[in-house]
Design a protein around this nucleic acid. Structure first.
Lengths: 201, 201
DNA sequence: CCGGTTGGTTAATGGTGGTTAACCAGACGG
DNA sequence: CCGTCTGGTTAACCACCATTAACCAACCGG
């Protein structure tokens, strides 16, 4: 399990994520990963239990980052269901918890596209245990979003709200498929589209 | 190349797409594909030149379907850039070419999620030639969308319009990730979100 | 009745890939 | 000085896999 995160482990996770995103889990050999970090082949087994374990660590890391970030952004507004004022969702500022989540997720997708890609397409290659752990965090992340969306969309039942949230993820995660415009323009475009999609006027 | 489409070939393509979508191109063996259609292993070589060829046929088939459908929907309005009235984009009816494209793509994604998934994530596993052919059709498809979007969004430069279109694809293609609500509800939800995202009021 | 095409089969082959084994250089506390 | 982690190395193993070869039953036009 080796739960500690040495810098070497982080480096491996980072480059492995890049490779997995580009060629898929089964399209990458441990030799490839080793070569990409400067060591060769079986040396990886000094840091991870195996190839699957590398993927598991990647996904756990990613889902953890997303969930923690989202929880920080919406801290203070969670649980209380008394406030029905949509403008007061989240902290006291003018922006709502939902807009903060959108900006956060957009920035994450723009800065770490590899993690986004791997997280959304390679979870099937995990073992039972790791998959459950990742799935748990992903569901919790969706739950945070759904709670933030609820006050804006009282018309949506919880299942539909969850589907809407996942559709918004699909929109924001489309960033790896097209990088032909500047990052800031893309950011503004995605944020605008996500807000319109989730809270139509 | 075997350009003809016998029913057996179509069956293979269909089940192969399902497998590729579930486990990824490299995660599926030719034995798996054969077993899934009731024959075993090398018998596939009587219908296709190899594993890559099966994937190529899948992707070509999918991109062809999308492009042809889109062209039919927008026939008559293509090319003419004189009409500036947004309500007249496309045919004479009240719906615009864009709304028709959205409904078409949504239905495709809902009925053929495997093709959608494979098309968006496995094009890197193709050979040079097949990849170029698929890419060409995908770009043409995006182009049809962009032309349909243009009258609604004169504020977007072409590159941004293309990015917006691809973001909309991401939204609509999110359907394989969550199938917890009824198909018609999902359809309405996705169409509504896509329209709001592309043409905010 | 027959020759060939169609669509299968199983066996063989060559390559690749994950994992383990055995070994080794260096850092480092005592 | 010395034992012991730590993080590497290369060689070996075995499984799996795409592809080819050789062979065969069934259909079918003439």
């Amino acid at each position: 399990m080796t739960p500690v995160q040495t810098p070497r482990r982080l480096q491996i996770l980072d480059t492995a994520a890049e490779l997995f995103a580009a060629r898929g889990f089964h399209g990458v050999s441990v030799g490839d990963i080793g070569a990409a970090v400067g060591i060769s082949g079986p040396a990886l087994y000094k840091h991870f239990a195996g190839k699957q374990d590398i993927l598991g660590a990647c996904l756990l890391h990613a889902s953890e980052q997303l969930l923690e970030g989202a929880r920080e952004l919406t801290a203070g507004a969670a649980g209380r269901s008394g406030s029905n004022d949509p403008d007061d969702t989240g902290k006291g500022s003018g922006d709502t918890a939902l807009t903060r989540l959108i900006a956060f997720h957009t920035d994450f997708a723009l800065t770490q596209p590899a993690l986004i890609v791997v997280q959304e397409r390679e979870w099937g290659a995990l073992g039972e245990a790791a998959r459950a752990a990742v799935r748990e965090r992903q569901l919790a992340y969706i739950e945070v979003w759904t709670r933030a969306l609820a006050p804006h969309r009282p018309d949506l039942a919880p299942p539909e709200a969850r589907a809407a949230v996942q559709a918004a993820f699909g929109l924001l995660n489309s960033t790896p498929h097209s990088a032909r415009i500047s990052r800031t323009t893309m950011r503004d475009l995605l944020i605008g589209m996500a807000e319109s999609a989730l809270t139509p006027t």
